[in-house]
Simulated assay, not measured.
Amino acid sequence: MSYKGYLIFDLDDTILDFKKGEKDGLNKVFKNHVIQDVHFDQWLPTFKQVNNAIWRQIEQGASAKELLDTRFSKTYQEFGVEADGKLLEMEYRSYLDENFFVLKGAKEMLLHLKKQNFQVIAGTNGKSSTQRNRLKGTGLEMLFEDIVISDEIGYAKPHRKFFDILMDRNKGMQPQNTLMIGDSLHSDIQGAINSGIRNIWFNPFRLKNDSGIIPDYEAQSFDEIVKRTQSIVFK
């Protein structure tokens, strides 16, 4: 089958509402492992700081499993408390696996693009079980011709190998007929740039870009993404 073009969509905070599910899961973990005289609103920023630093290392090629198993123990250490990082990670993952929140309008956008004869592919960093459970639970699994997950292929965005493997798996896919859409400048946009793939930075909150990473296009809504795909020439 001949496609108009190939669209790679990030999942977390591009299609799926990861932030909502993340906060819900972290709140449950904290309630089960309360620190005396510490409120969740104090604990959460510390976790995010630790977590962001860990994901930067993963995006640079470090082992995801080893590092993710330390994020809770490191967070609790900041409050002078020892915690079993692996057990808390397993508990948190069980909550994330049930994060079935979809960003409003995402499903309709994907259906529209498929009707426009685009091949739609999910390209995501993260744990295989978590991402696949969420796609299945939200009913979005069948909307993607392929689902490429860093945990399964051994490389995370923005590593070029992530995109090389993704393109090798999809016959006819080349940088010039492909578009990457995602909310992360550091993983989605930088990864696309590394592979010579045009890209759209999904920026619904109109965040300031002071990263030094320059996307080809920017969109604040799903309607803007659809309009942009109509104006781009896919060779």
Rank of each mutant, 00 (worst) to 15 (best):
M1A: 12
S2I: 15
F9D: 12
F9C: 14
D10S: 05
D10W: 02
D13C: 03
T14N: 14
I15E: 14
I15G: 14
L16C: 10
F18C: 05
K20N: 00
E22F: 02
D24Y: 00
G25L: 10
L26C: 08
N32F: 08
N32E: 15
H33F: 09
D37S: 13
V38E: 06
F40M: 02
D41G: 08
W43D: 06
P45D: 15
T46K: 14
F47T: 03
K48T: 08
N52D: 10
N52T: 08
Q57H: 10
I58F: 04
Q60E: 01
G61L: 02
L67E: 01
L67I: 10
L67Q: 03
T70G: 08
R71E: 05
F72Y: 01
K74N: 09
Y76E: 01
E78I: 07
E78F: 09
G80I: 11
V81D: 06
L87R: 08
L88M: 14
M90W: 04
M90H: 09
E91Q: 12
Y92A: 09
D97Y: 03
D97A: 11
E98L: 15
F100T: 13
V102F: 00
L103S: 04
K107Q: 13
E108M: 10
M109K: 07
L110G: 01
L111M: 13
K114R: 15
K114N: 05
K115W: 05
Q116Y: 11
Q116F: 12
G123N: 00
S129T: 15
S129E: 15
Q131R: 05
K136Y: 04
M142H: 04
E145P: 06
E145N: 13
I147V: 15
V148E: 01
I149M: 00
E152T: 06
E152V: 03
I153H: 09
G154W: 03
P158S: 07
K161G: 01
F162N: 00
D164H: 02
I165Y: 00
R169V: 05
K171H: 06
M173K: 04
Q174M: 13
L179G: 06
I181R: 06
I181N: 05
S184Q: 09
S184G: 04
S184F: 05
H186T: 15
I189T: 08
I189C: 03
I193S: 09
I193K: 13
N199E: 10
N199K: 09
I200W: 07
I200Y: 01
I200M: 08
W201V: 14
N203W: 10
R206T: 11
I214T: 14
S221H: 09
F222P: 08
D223V: 13
Q230K: 13
Q230C: 10
I232Q: 05
I232E: 04
